[in-house]
């Protein structure tokens, strides 16, 4: 029985069987790894898992009466995959080249031929490779600086900074690194604006106070 590791919404889990995966409510954004793969791949590039996704999506759409027809299909497609480990690899690499150009390094590195006995070395391997959701660290949230800016400098941009910290983490957990990075940048700018406003307003405010008192 092939064991799968999954990386879904920032959480890594495994090992799991195909049946266990079906219970997880995964969608196309999940990444998966099993022995024989050089690195994490999109779940849709693994044929048997793509079928599983499609089946569960169909099952959700269609009437419950048609469910039993879908399930035997999934079981039969599992069988050939168990016999030949290499079979899924070719379509995967093509699919990656078409869909995920950012995973270039996956294609360039020659896929090490893992034997079946290496199953329990698996959790280590994905962490070393450029795992799509593991290796990229969360962009800085600037949360502490936003809080400091809120309390010390200029509250309004400070609060905006905290909101951007929230959005950074939210998009990061959803696996949307690009948006997370943008939110992180906005957050940094909020803090900078807050501090600048504080620095500008300080002497201005003091000067006005002294001027008022003098009058």
């Amino acid at each position: 029985m092939r064991q799968y590791w999954i990386n879904f919404k920032g959480n890594q889990e495994g090992p799991m069987s195909l049946e266990q995966l079906a219970q997880k409510g995964l969608d196309e954004t999940a990444y998966v790894w099993h022995s024989g793969l050089a690195d994490w791949v999109k779940i849709t590039t693994v044929p048997e898992l793509n079928d599983m996704l499609n089946n569960s999506a169909k099952a959700a759409q269609e009437s419950p009466a048609e469910l039993p027809e879908q399930e035997p299909e999934a079981v039969t497609e599992e069988v050939p995959e168990l016999e030949t480990e290499e079979v899924p690899e070719l379509p995967q690499e093509e699919a990656i080249a078409d869909e995920v150009p950012s995973l270039d390094n996956v294609i360039e590195s020659p896929a090490p031929n893992y034997g079946g006995q290496q199953q329990y070395a698996m959790p280590v391997a994905p962490q070393q490779g450029p795992a799509p959701q593991e290796a990229p660290k969360c962009p800085p949230t600037n949360l502490v600086w936003s809080i400091i800016a809120t309390v010390l400098c200029c509250s309004i941009p400070g609060i905006v900074g905290i909101v951007f910290a929230f959005l950074t983490k939210k998009y990061y957990r959803e696996g949307n690194l690009e948006k997370a990075q943008r939110m992180s940048d906005y957050g940094a700018w909020s803090v900078i604006i807050s501090i600048m406003l504080g620095i500008i307003s300080m002497p201005l405010s003091c000067a006005m106070n002294i001027f008022k008192v003098a009058m």
Binding site: V151, C154, S155, I159, M202, C206, M208, N209
Partner: peptide, 18 residues
Amino acid sequence: KYFPKCPFYSLTGLKCPG
């Protein structure tokens, strides 16, 4: 008078969280 006033309070008359 030597300490800065909150710009938000000076402009709006409302207290900000800081």
